[in-house]
Design a protein around this nucleic acid. Sequence first.
DNA 1: ATGGCTTTGTGAAATCTTTCACAATGTAGT
DNA 2: ACTACATTGTGAAAGATTTCACAAAGCCAT
Lengths: 211, 211
Amino acid sequence: MHSPTKHIAESTVRRLSLYLRFLEEFEARGQTTVSSGELARSGGTTSAQVRKDLSFFGSFGKRGLGYGVKDLISSIREILGLEQPWPVIIIGAGKIGAALAQYRGFTSRGFHVVGVYDADPSKVGMQLGALAVRSDKEIERDIAAHKPRIAVLAVPADAAQPMVDRVVAAGMHAVLSFAPAPLHAPHGVTIRAVNMATELEILAYSLTHGV
Amino acid sequence: MHSPTKHIAESTVRRLSLYLRFLEEFEARGQTTVSSGELARSGGTTSAQVRKDLSFFGSFGKRGLGYGVKDLISSIREILGLEQPWPVIIIGAGKIGAALAQYRGFTSRGFHVVGVYDADPSKVGMQLGALAVRSDKEIERDIAAHKPRIAVLAVPADAAQPMVDRVVAAGMHAVLSFAPAPLHAPHGVTIRAVNMATELEILAYSLTHGV
DNA sequence: ATGGCTTTGTGAAATCTTTCACAATGTAGT
DNA sequence: ACTACATTGTGAAAGATTTCACAAAGCCAT
Ligand SMILES: NC(=O)c1ccc[n+]([C@@H]2O[C@H](COP(=O)([O-])OP(=O)(O)OC[C@H]3O[C@@H](n4cnc5c(N)ncnc54)[C@H](O)[C@@H]3O)[C@@H](O)[C@H]2O)c1
Ligand SMILES: NC(=O)c1ccc[n+]([C@@H]2O[C@H](COP(=O)([O-])OP(=O)(O)OC[C@H]3O[C@@H](n4cnc5c(N)ncnc54)[C@H](O)[C@@H]3O)[C@@H](O)[C@H]2O)c1
């Protein structure tokens, strides 16, 4: 039911994550049922798109009625893999790493920061929320011992690829990087990069060429 | 030459920003000429893709030789609108806003932070790098006076839409938001949102369903 | 139970994006 | 000047994604 044979486009997965956010709002407001049209309006898409996105994974609605809010929340959480907790480590306890380590928005979705690492001895031991910064030398041992599933990289650009290599060698299969550096990893490892300069440049392009 | 009649896909603009990054590396290494194939290899795409992306905007290469690194850098900077400086304001001087305000990576691309604002009186006056945090009450006056072109939002989710409305009313046409909230703006205003939870959820999906 | 109304799920069509493949154009060596 | 070679620029083909449009299914009022 929840494992499509076909490859699913990233845009679909991204929208599912978005729908989940809206569904949680509908739930908080006490709404029990929602139509593809309502969901589409919140998310700036179309009702056909919403139905098509869901149809890749199964059939979740009731014709004439719409989707049960609670049911659809569980279904999407299951599709995305959010029914299990996701231990995450953060590497680089600088300005952005420290902000991320203390950010509470992750936890609500099942992402738990279980370790923060830095190469700078003056940062090691520093308390960030409930966690103390650990030395980067512990990364390999901690990955082996605690099996965090995702590594978030907040290190300088030139340290990013070597760190990807290290965590991949240690068994990590997913990396989210904030460093403005192109990253490569072997097949089977998923890398995502958030590049703020690129986001600003897309805005600059759209301002320059009219909307 | 640089203003296509056709609509250009966001994916193309995103890749242009990426090519620019690689070109700057080639330039730093003293390379004067680069082929679409080399550029493609750095960026994990194909040479045909590189040539097609550029062809929307004109003809920048020499057959048999490739592209002049310096020339292509200026051409892409012109396409993206980066030949002019982009004054930016940051709204919300919390953990992420403070990190962004002190981030030096923006400046190199022509994005200059000209103001940081917060609603919390205890944050107003705080020094972030060269800038002092100002009261959010000054936002409208400062936009009118200094005409920043992009507003970066680092405020809590429920303050995001009201703040979009304020800055748009004050004349802003582009917003980059870090708040996990869906944002709407009138036609003619470009909004981009970086949602870290969604990025992690896409990783969770790909780990859950195999790569 | 029936009929009218609403909304889903989904093939098919339309649109958008990427890849292919090659003529055109230029370089470089002789 | 000629030849061999490299690489661009681009229509056309292939592939991917979105939108359309409608039959099927279920609710609700009577
Ligand atoms: N600050 C921002 O707003 C911002 C925005 C976008 C992108 N980024 C990117 O995020 C990354 C971090 O930025 P920042 O502003 O937090 O920088 P920062 O200098 O404050 O922090 C970087 C941290 O990484 C640590 N580090 C360096 N090498 C390491 C290694 N091999 N292992 C472990 N730790 C190591 C340093 O000791 C430092 O504490 C950079 O790549 C930057 O370009 C930052
Ligand atoms: N910290 C992170 O790593 C992180 C990661 C992803 C997303 N975000 C998002 O970024 C936003 C900011 O996060 P943060 O961790 O910096 O939070 P924070 O609480 O540290 O900072 C928010 C700041 O916004 C200010 N503020 C509130 N209302 C305002 C208003 N109307 N005008 C001006 N300023 C106002 C507050 O005074 C505070 O200083 C949130 O929406 C958060 O969900 C944060």
